[in-house]
């Protein structure tokens, strides 16, 4: 194989090294993941409130959403939504009399992954809200708190510790799912590694480098989430 100097040359930040391409890819992966996670959390919050709200048709629609999204493989969903989303948007635009637009790859990736995350997030948040003791909600009601105040002051703070393990899992899965965006041609870390690898024929080197970057992201995320959980669980009884 190569000497260590040539490995460093391949991985150097500036061209002809491919390190810069990989790092740009890693930044894109993080951007997609952050964006999708945020979109998913908003969708999940509304989804959970909708599911627990008790309005029949709303609950039915949300059930279809979470069931279908969680039963269909992510890859199929991402490809379908990617095409359906851009296609649908352009149809709406042409109907409104505006010409077709090229949808930004990053925005499309965030929207698609966020839609998928939303379904999982709905279930995590629903479970977390359900695990809040009913007495606390009744006490808040008895004090005359309105639903919004009750949600902000009682529900939200007490659901966070319950939802954190689920949030951590979803964060790790959105990072790994973001690699699937490579399939629709947006250059995030996985596709960047593939481009670098096929240009240099150093497949092992670049895929290992990409794996190391993913691993670094997940390990740092793990540490952050355990710190967060320790913070939000302060004053709680230990689980074990």
């Amino acid at each position: 194989m190569n000497s260590s100097t040539s490995i460093l040359q391949y991985l150097s930040i500036s061209p002809p090294g491919w390190g810069g391409v990989l790092l740009t890819g890693a930044v894109a992966t993080l951007l997609i993941s952050f964006g999708a996670y945020f979109v998913g959390m908003i969708l999940g919050l509304f989804g959970a409130i909708g599911k627990l709200g008790g309005i029949r048709p709303v609950g039915f629609v949300l059930n279809v959403y979470t069931t279908v999204v969680r039963a269909v493989p992510e890859l199929v969903l991402i490809v379908a939504l990617y095409y359906a989303g851009t296609d649908g948007l352009n149809r709406v635009l042409s109907w409104a009399g505006v010409g077709p637009i090229e949808v930004n790859g990053l925005v499309a990736a965030i929207a698609v992954l966020g839609f998928v995350q939303g379904a999982y997030m709905t279930e995590v948040l629903r479970g977390a809200i359900l695990s809040i003791p009913v007495g606390q909600l009744e006490a808040a009601k008895a004090f005359g708190m309105r639903p919004t105040l009750r949600f902000r002051r009682i529900v939200l703070p007490s659901l966070i510790p319950n939802a954190l393990p689920g949030f951590a899992n979803l964060w790790l899965s959105v990072i790994k799912d973001s690699a699937l965006i490579a399939v629709v041609g947006y250059q995030e870390l996985a596709l960047a590694a593939r481009v670098a690898a096929s240009n240099t024929k150093q497949y092992m080197l670049f895929f290992l480098a990409a794996a190391a970057l993913y691993l670094a992201i997940t390990i740092v995320s793990n540490l952050l989430f355990s710190a967060l959980e320790a913070h939000f669980r302060r004053g709680h009884r230990p689980i074990h």
């Binding site: 996985a190 092992m204 895929f207 794996a211």
Partner: peptide, 23 residues
């Protein structure tokens, strides 16, 4: 376990197919 759970399956697949496959 940390390696295989911490990296995307896509990367593992390409690592094995293109990387190992070339050896």
């Amino acid at each position: 376990c940390t390696f295989f759970r911490g990296t995307p399956l896509l990367i593992q697949l390409w690592l094995i197919y293109y990387g190992l496959g070339s050896y």
